[in-house]
Design a protein around this nucleic acid. Structure first.
Lengths: 126, 126
DNA sequence: GTAAACGTTGACGTCAGTGTCAGGGTCAAG
DNA sequence: CTTGACCCTGACACTGACGTCAACGTTTAC
């Protein structure tokens, strides 16, 4: 299939697919006229990339998963490198959550100082 | 005081101060030679801006606080516009936390599927 | 045959808050 | 008189994942 069809089926733009290729995540055969030609396996790669991006992974993070799929594994996570990325991202997410909770507390504290009662709006009506 | 001193005392770079000015957050008198001249009140403004930035506010978010201080209030939060920003940011932070918790669960789920036992490392050793 | 719909590469724009140059001017100390 | 520490105004670089446009070639449908 050509880039437009792959894009539609994967739910991304052709531009995104070219970008993934530029970043070394996917490759494409070229037909005689220079058009990119993709296989069903490529659709699987792109689907994997998309699902990783939507949970906050970067393309760099996604590389081991793609490599794992290309190595013949059924899941992109079936490789130690992918598992390592999972563990690292999980730690990063935890750090972000902690940081956000701290910020939330600070902002809520400031708000309650500036406007007592403002902070307890709907859920709490002590 | 001139920009270098204000920068040191506020813990920011001169570049940042010029940027804040460009964005309409602070103003400065100019001496005969064109140098920016700041007052103690400006230090207070910049300190307020910094503390807001560190909890994740944008310069745009900080504008009402600066305006409030310039209007003569002791705290930048002593104005309804500032309180409104606090409430909005609090809601934004809550949204982010919720999104991160969802992502965390997804990643943890994937990790435990790919590598059962990996997810419970230190704290849980069921 | 021609217009629509597709493909190609290349390159700039986006968001925020700076860092870091270039190419100047100013000012005090020695 | 010169060095060094300031100051000034541009203006480009950065991060990430693209959007968007230009300027062009190809294929498909009528």
């Amino acid at each position: 299939m050509r880039i437009g069809e792959l894009a539609r089926r994967a739910g991304v733009s052709p531009r995104a697919l070219r970008y993934y290729e530029q970043q070394g995540l996917i490759r494409a055969r070229r037909t005689a006229n220079g058009y990119r030609e993709y296989s069903e396996a490529d659709l699987k790669l792109v689907t994997e990339i998309r699902s990783l991006l939507t949970v906050g992974f970067t393309l760099e993070d996604a590389k081991p998963f793609v490599a794992c799929l290309r190595a013949g594994h059924e899941s992109g996570a079936d490789c130690p490198e992918s598992v390592e990325v999972y563990r690292r991202k999980l730690a990063e997410i935890d750090d972000e959550i902690r940081a956000l909770l701290v910020r939330r507390a600070e902002v809520a504290g400031q708000l309650s100082t500036a406007c007592p009662g403002c902070v307890l709006t709907k859920q709490e009506k002590t």
